[in-house]
């Protein structure tokens, strides 16, 4: 008995050790970023455009990367959310059970697990087809073959949308399935048709799950680097007509390349061409703050759901 208790306490100590290690590593990462990045943070850093240079002092700020992240999140979500939700509605409430639906749900599962880098080369290969030239710009190849450039905010945003689509379908379908059938029956009993029941009863009831799904999808877009690196091009600045922010130049901005926070970090880190780690840390800190905000929102929403359940 003694020996056993001794073994147990050794194992338990090891577990505590593991927990302390995990927490130390986690807090270490956050602290390291805060320490390294905090100096960079200033209104200037956030409000000025980056400067392609080799000197860290003139590197400028991260205004366009922030705008780039927002743009991609916006385009991707705008594409994937309505599409994903309506598909999920169809699969959950209209599609007949059978082989086709099973195959499709398996395919959605698999696609949701496919690494984003694979989706990234897919996007690049598809959108370099001249047919899609209007999304980026046409380039003349060496042998006179016309190709699309295949790298722009439009292309990257649409690829992001495709990347999160299976994920949105899956999580929205889960949220919709969690609505008790009795709600729908009650709605039918009151004389509502299927459309009314879905729009007025099911979707409001699944609201929290649907919002959480969208926010998690946004988080994926914000955090993704592979798709940005391949389909948005590796330029720091907006390459459309300048100034990029004036409305008449928006179409051009969207057709051209730029950067997001993640590609900015990649570019300015020693892995990219810039080798300006201090601004990379500043951008990382901003990126983490965005992720934390999204995190707090989902936590808040899920706590709302729990409160309601407890009542």
């Amino acid at each position: 008995m003694r020996l056993k208790l001794f073994q147990d306490s050794v194992m338990k100590t090891l577990c505590y050790f593991a927990a302390v290690m995990t927490v130390a590593v986690c807090l270490g990462i956050i602290l390291y970023l805060v320490i390294k990045g905090f100096d960079q943070l200033s209104p200037d850093f956030i409000m000025t455009e980056p400067n392609p240079t080799f000197s860290q002092d003139n590197a400028g700020g991260i205004l366009t990367p922030i705008v780039g992240t927002l743009l991609l999140t916006f385009i991707g979500t705008l594409l994937a959310f309505p599409w994903g939700l309506s598909s999920a509605l169809y699969y959950t409430f209209y599609a007949k059970k059978g082989k086709l639906r099973d195959t499709l749900s398996t395919a959605i599962d698999i696609l949701a697990g496919v690494p984003t880098i694979v989706i990234a080369i897919f996007g690049l290969a598809v959108f370099t087809n001249p047919f899609w030239g209007f999304l980026s710009s046409r380039v003349e190849g060496v042998e006179g073959i016309s190709k699309a450039f295949g790298r722009s905010f439009w292309v990257a945003g649409i690829t992001m949308g495709i990347m999160i689509l299976p994920y949105i379908i899956k999580t929205c379908a889960e949220a919709l399935k969690a609505v008790p059938p009795s709600y729908i029956e009650a709605s039918y009993a009151l004389g509502a048709d299927k459309r009314q029941s879905l729009l007025r009863v099911v979707i409001p009831a699944a609201k929290n799950g649907i919002i959480t799904s969208v926010i998690l999808g946004m988080g994926r877009i914000v955090g993704d680097t592979a798709i940005v690196w391949l389909t948005l091009g590796g330029t720091l600045r907006m390459t459309g007509l300048q100034p990029w922010y004036s409305p008449e130049n928006w179409p051009s901005t969207l057709q051209n390349t730029g950067s997001t926070l993640t590609s900015y970090i990649f570019y300015t880190s020693p892995a990219g061409e810039g080798n300006m780690p201090s601004v990379a840390f500043g951008a990382s800190l901003v990126l983490i703050v965005i992720i934390i905000v999204l995190h707090i929102i989902t936590d808040y929403i899920s706590s709302l759901g729990k409160l309601r359940d407890e009542e």
Partner: peptide, 10 residues
């Protein structure tokens, strides 16, 4: 939920 680029940078 921290993006992998940050793990890469560190």
């Amino acid at each position: 939920s921290i993006p992998s680029i940050i793990y890469g940078l560190i």
